[in-house]
Computed example of a mutant assay.
Amino acid sequence: MVTGELRRRADGIWQRILAHPFVAELYAGTLPMEKFKYYLLQDYNYLVNFAKALSLAASRAPSVDLMKTALELAYGTVTGEMANYEALLKEVGLSLRDAAEAEPNRVNVSYMAYLKSTCALEGFYQCMAALLPCFWSYAEIAERHGGKLRENPVHVYKKWASVYLSPEYRGLVERLRAVLDSSGLSAEELWPYFKEASLYELEFWQAAYEGH
């Protein structure tokens, strides 16, 4: 399976993501709340642009079914995920206006520019290879650290993490992997996109931890 090979190649990057202090502390309940607030504001901006990238991917889809998949993901991001973020923002004393007015940091700007340009200029499957690390790495983070939630004293952290532990989310990741596995493309062809996005995921966590 091509996605399995991509994941194997990226393991050095992903192990750093899985062990990153931001996610380890978040699941343990020791992450300072100000760091989490900063992350939420940055990630809301990320989701807006992620939905745009998915919409661009839909225009590149080689079949109607794949176009539907991309559009369904874009719609789910705009509705479900953003509704969830609105609730999280309220719980930590922030508003949608705060999120809309927050200035994206340099990693966020670069990551979003990369995804949107890839989805606008490259092929559909190259775009999927660039989008998959976000979905998939969050699932692996949840698998790695989910056991800590039993002792986590911070309700909002547990609420945030529960999304990525759900069967629905895992099913979404498997669906995306299946799309890429059916591409007929080799890991060598897709690796540059998967690798770049994986590096951006790592940098996004680091920027959130540092607060800039």
Rank of each mutant, 00 (worst) to 15 (best):
L172I: 12
R150I: 05
P104R: 06
W160Q: 02
M128N: 03
G171I: 12
E189I: 01
W191V: 02
E168Q: 13
N105R: 03
C119M: 07
L172Y: 12
G184P: 00
Y164T: 08
A142L: 00
R106N: 07
K116D: 02
A83Q: 11
E91N: 10
P192W: 13
M82H: 09
S183D: 04
A139K: 00
C119A: 12
A120W: 00
L94V: 07
L89R: 07
E91W: 12
A83W: 13
S137Q: 14
S162C: 08
R144H: 15
A161K: 04
L89V: 06
K90Y: 15
V92L: 07
V163S: 12
E140C: 11
F135W: 09
N84P: 04
E122Q: 05
M112Y: 10
Y114Q: 00
E91I: 09
R150Q: 07
N105P: 01
E174H: 14
V156I: 04
E122C: 08
K195P: 03
L96T: 06
W191E: 07
E168A: 15
L176S: 05
Y157H: 11
E168Y: 15
M112N: 02
C119I: 01
G123H: 02
R177E: 13
V92R: 00
K158D: 09
Y85E: 15
M128S: 03
Y164L: 10
L88W: 13
L89G: 07
G147D: 07
L89F: 14
K116T: 09
Y125L: 03
A100V: 09
I141V: 05
W160V: 08
H155E: 15
A120P: 01
A130C: 06
R144F: 14
L185Y: 06
L202F: 14
K158P: 03
A102P: 02
S110I: 10
N84L: 15
